[in-house]
Amino acid sequence: MISTQTATQQIMEDRKSVRKYKEGVTIPQEKLMELLQLATTAPSSSNMQPWRFLVIQDEEAKKELLPIAFNQEQIVKSSATIAILGDMKMYENAQAIYDANVEQGFMSREIADNMIQNSLNLYAGLTDEALKGVIQFDAGLISMQIMLLAKDMGYDTVPMGGFNKQQFAEHFKLPENEFPVVLISIGEAATPAYGSSRIPAEQLTRFI
């Protein structure tokens, strides 16, 4: 039987990490906001949504970011770079998040109150290292969603974990409760990305 590729599968197939971008291409801020709003449908631990975004479009800011990102060309050539940040105090939003769930009919007041208390108890009691692990996991979920949505909108992306995170936080004056996780450059490809092989799933999977 020949299966027909779905639109989602096609986007997943077409998404590649692009490092060469057309210069001078501007993505309207409204379009970037639409992209990020859609991406926030990603799941997160206890629905705490710990991601924050810093979108770097200004040409001077790009030049300042370049050495922090180890001189990766896409920083200055792409339309923008989206920094995915993590909020170490995300659990302080538990009340507002679960109040909204009640207002929108997603759960009862009793369940929401229980979730609020559980979230505050759990995350406030974690070590910084453990909390960062939770946040980085959630940041990975939304980062992939951003890249797939960008491809669906006609843009290319490349994720970058290789940059000086301490310098980034200091230079862009992040509040103490925020830390950078990954950078995602976005724009229009100047040249096609290289293809890349994948290990067959059969070699990676065990069933028990």
Rank of each mutant, 00 (worst) to 15 (best):
E170P: 02
A190L: 09
P192R: 06
H171V: 11
S197T: 15
I184P: 00
G195D: 14
E178A: 06
H171T: 15
N177T: 03
E170C: 05
S185L: 07
V158A: 13
P180T: 03
E188K: 02
E188D: 02
Q167I: 04
P175E: 13
L174Y: 00
A193K: 08
Q166G: 06
N177R: 07
D156F: 03
S185V: 15
T191E: 13
E176I: 06
F163V: 11
T157P: 06
T157K: 03
T191P: 00
F168M: 09
Q167R: 12
L183P: 09
S197P: 04
G154D: 05
P175C: 05
G187T: 07
I184C: 03
E188S: 00
M153Y: 13
G161D: 09
N164F: 06
A169D: 03
V182R: 05
Y155E: 12
A193D: 07
S185P: 10
L183Q: 10
S185T: 14
F168C: 11
V182M: 15
I186E: 06
P175R: 04
G162E: 09
G162S: 15
E188M: 00
S185Y: 08
L183R: 12
P159Q: 11
D156I: 00
M160K: 05
G161M: 10
F163C: 15
M160W: 01
A169K: 15
V182Q: 13
D156H: 04
M160N: 10
A193H: 04
G187M: 06
I184G: 02
M153D: 04
P192I: 03
S197Y: 12
F172P: 10
Y194Q: 12
E178P: 04
E188Y: 00
F168D: 11
G162C: 09
E170G: 10
F168H: 11
G195T: 13
M153R: 02
G162N: 12
L174T: 01
D156T: 04
F179Q: 01
G195I: 07
T157H: 08
V182H: 08
L174D: 00
N177E: 10
K173E: 14
F172G: 08
L174G: 00
F172H: 13
Y155R: 04
F168L: 15
S197M: 08
A190M: 02
G161R: 08
Y194T: 12
P192N: 09
I184Y: 01
E170L: 07
K165R: 15
N177A: 04
A169E: 02
S196L: 10
I184M: 02
I184V: 15
S196E: 13
M153A: 04
A189R: 14
S197L: 11
M160P: 05
M160C: 08
L183D: 11
V181H: 03
Y155A: 10
V158M: 09
M160G: 05
E176K: 14
T191R: 02
T157I: 10
F168P: 14
G154L: 02
M160S: 13
V158G: 06
V182Y: 09
A193P: 10
P180I: 04
G161C: 10
M153I: 03
P180D: 05
F179G: 01
M160Q: 14
G187H: 03
P159G: 12
G195E: 14
G161T: 13
Q166P: 02
G195N: 15
Y155N: 05
D156W: 00
L183Y: 11
S185N: 13
S196D: 08
P192C: 08
P180S: 11
N177Y: 01
